[in-house]
Computed example of a mutant assay.
Amino acid sequence: MTFNDNAKSSSSKTRRRGRTGGIVAGGGGVAVIALFLLSQFLGVDLTGLAGGGTPQNGADEEIAACDTGADANANLDCRLDLAGESIDAYWATQLSDYRVPPVIFFEDQTNTGCGGATSAVGPFYCPADETIYMDTSFFTDLRDRFGANSGPLAELYVLAHESGHHIQNITGTMDGLDLAATGPDSDSVRLEVQADCYAGAWVGEASTVPDASGTPFLEPITSQQVADALSAAAAVGDDRIQESATGQVNPESWTHGSSEQRQKWFTAGYEGGPEACDTFAGAL
């Protein structure tokens, strides 16, 4: 996924969070939905956070020198920052009440509106503070541990997926779901694959989304770049993760969807836009 070199950033919404080290007591209870969403990609059990402490955070600093598409093509942080602007510009055309979610880069551990979290949970969206949290070292794991293709769109798929959860939060899709249930047709899986579908919807229109001056943020998407995104979606399928970890697949424990489901719904959004993303109607 290549940015137009002369595309311009209007204002950074991405911050890098410093660390002061240590854990302080407190943090309070964490809602079930937050615990679920903090386990975005790896299905990690985070219930232990409910009574634990929270990390101490340093100041949030704006990502520096991310002004153009050329900067985005050369630097991962800038790439995610400018992609975030493109995603926001796209969803602002789809939702009249769209609100821009901040993106926080962190290392190892951080405090959020949903409680304390570590890099082990992978990138996640916290509905309590409407913020996306990412430790960018996850992209190395995505490639080396889970076998996804490398490539910018594999990375940007992750951000677009988390932005999809923000859309679900804004539209009320998260309300009233049974997120304690698991399985290939569970509400948890339906929520996750809908976020994949929303990611695909943005990718399908990304090369037409303009910056403030009217220049498209991105060049036309190639078939290889779409293949990279599909590879990333497959790599974080429940079946792929279970098989690599234990050698067995247990569909009844799925919370995020199989590789096939995740690829299917990304493709549905890519080809049909948000209107094709009703994952809560019928079979998956």
Rank of each mutant, 00 (worst) to 15 (best):
D175H: 12
D239T: 07
S186C: 02
L218R: 13
S150E: 12
V193H: 01
F139E: 03
A233K: 10
C126R: 08
R145A: 15
E243C: 13
N250V: 15
T182H: 04
T131L: 03
I132N: 07
M134T: 09
P216N: 08
D129L: 02
A201F: 07
T246R: 08
N149Q: 15
Y125H: 12
D141Y: 13
L153D: 08
G151N: 02
G237H: 07
A195C: 03
T182S: 04
A195V: 06
P184S: 10
V121A: 13
Y125F: 15
Q242D: 06
A181R: 05
G214Y: 06
T173E: 15
A128S: 14
I170D: 01
D228L: 06
T110F: 01
E243G: 13
I170S: 02
V209L: 10
A201T: 09
L230Y: 01
V209C: 09
N111R: 14
S119V: 10
S137T: 12
V193R: 05
T112K: 07
F146G: 02
Q168E: 05
D175V: 14
D135C: 04
S231A: 09
V236N: 09
C126G: 09
L153N: 04
A245I: 12
L177E: 07
S137A: 13
E162W: 10
F139V: 00
Q248K: 15
W202I: 03
S231Y: 11
A128P: 00
R240D: 11
T112L: 02
Y133F: 06
G204I: 10
T171L: 06
V209A: 06
T246L: 07
L142Y: 09
T246V: 09
V226I: 14
D178F: 04
D239A: 09
H166I: 06
C126Y: 09
V193F: 02
D196F: 13
T110I: 12
A154Q: 05
E162S: 00
V121M: 13
G183E: 04
P216C: 05
P152W: 15
L159N: 09
T246N: 05
F139W: 01
G176C: 10
A206W: 00
A227Y: 04
V249L: 01
I167C: 04
G237T: 06
D178V: 00
A227P: 01
A229T: 02
T118C: 11
S150G: 15
Q225E: 14
I170F: 00
E252F: 14
H165N: 08
G147V: 14
C197A: 03
G176Q: 08
F146K: 09
G176D: 04
F139M: 02
E192I: 00
R145H: 13
P152K: 13
L218M: 13
P220G: 02
L179G: 08
I221V: 14
P216T: 09
G164I: 05
T182F: 02
T136K: 04
W254V: 12
G115H: 03
P127T: 00
